[in-house]
Write a protein that binds this DNA or RNA. Structure first.
Lengths: 206, 206
DNA sequence: TTACGTACCGAACACGCGTTACGTACGAGC
DNA sequence: GCTCGTACGTAACGCGTGTTCGGTACGTAA
């Protein structure tokens, strides 16, 4: 057997780190074999030993993006219902450097995804999964009476929450000074508060 | 004086059309001089007579995007207040082919913008302008009592509305089957309805 | 007519890209 | 010992990119 068998995966992790660094700085449009190789001080030929083609490297980059998103540190899920939704959406917003980098890379990937049918389908599936992970908590919120009388169906609520959150992400990425952590949090709380629709928070006008 | 002086602008319009076509198909990542030249059956050298460098052509593409966005056909603005907000946001959503293409190109441009400091500032300024154009109508809605008691400040309302709308745009672009025209409209109406917060629609629980 | 400046083409340039081929080092197995 | 397969590095290839350079056609000005 050749050298250490575990080294292979270790090397791929090094490559992942370099890929991540390049993506954070230049986005997918600037993801190039030479840039990745330069970021880890190796030759481009070495990269090809671990990723035979650039398409493989891009696929790995997207995998890496999805993995790091799935395995990011998350807040503890409190009670059921809207509070959980709030926590999940807070975990998405670019409140820290890591979240900012991750969101930047996600947004950057949309250019590629919109031009490639397969990648677009992947992205659509990701959105579906995200909405599906949110839906049961909206169902619980409905059951617990946390939502106003005019509340929409859980599917639509989930889609709206995702829309609001990602739209806020994009604005915050382009204008971080205008959307610091507390502003983002306040906006999210107001959005969720408006779903509560006149019950609970500040008493009604009766 | 050389040939017709008006021809110059006419030619630039032709180039604009080709640029638009390329952008709609390949996004900014696929915007290349040869692609544009091929789209109008001319040589790349001809392009350089009207746009000396690619950076100039990219700048023109962004200008074109902004112009076509500003000059797109718009719905008539009804009364003051939330109804106007609704109309303005409906004008943004990808409800038709033209709006879809425009939104695709916008999203595609974010990859470039996030990697370029100047372009990012431009995009941030555009968002500021969009929020500013929305704010007075939220002010009017507040004055007319169209918003619930717990409504946030007009600036924040405008930012939230933009967030919701653009987040919905992105989801609709990637999954148009799941977000047809009526679903988008219903989601927007529900979002605006939740801002009304327990007054007007279905009576409170008193 | 001559001179000139513009519009445009076709070919070429230098460069960066993804990819490939060749060469070397080195540890494992016989 | 030798062989072999893996892990690289080096150098180059072919190609597409943005850009440049002569060259031609043509309408205007003198």
């Amino acid at each position: 057997m050749p050298p250490a068998p575990g080294d292979r995966e270790a090397r791929r992790k090094d490559v992942s780190e370099a890929v991540w660094q390049v993506l954070a700085e230049k986005g997918f449009g600037g993801l190039t074999l030479r840039a990745v190789a330069a970021a880890m001080n190796v030759s481009t030929g070495m990269l090809m030993h671990y990723f035979p083609t650039k398409r493989a490297l891009i696929a790995h980059a997207l995998d890496l993006l999805e993995t790091r998103t799935a395995e990011r540190p998350r807040r503890a899920r409190p009670a059921e219902g809207l509070a959980t939704v709030r926590t999940m959406l807070l975990d998405i917003l670019p409140l820290g450097p890591d979240d900012t980098a991750r969101n930047r890379i996600w947004v950057s990937s949309w250019d590629l995804a919109l031009a490639d049918r397969g990648l677009a389908a992947d992205q659509a599936a990701r959105y579906t999964r995200l909405r599906d992970s949110l839906r049961p908590h909206f169902v619980a919120a409905l059951a617990r009476g946390e939502l106003g009388a005019g509340a929409a169906a859980p599917d639509q609520l989930a889609a709206s929450a995702v829309a609001f959150t990602h739209g806020l992400v994009v604005q915050a990425l382009f204008d971080p000074a205008r959307f610091p952590e507390d502003v983002q949090t306040a906006m999210l709380d107001d959005f969720l508060g408006s779903l509560r629709a006149g019950e609970g928070s500040s008493g009604g006008s009766c």
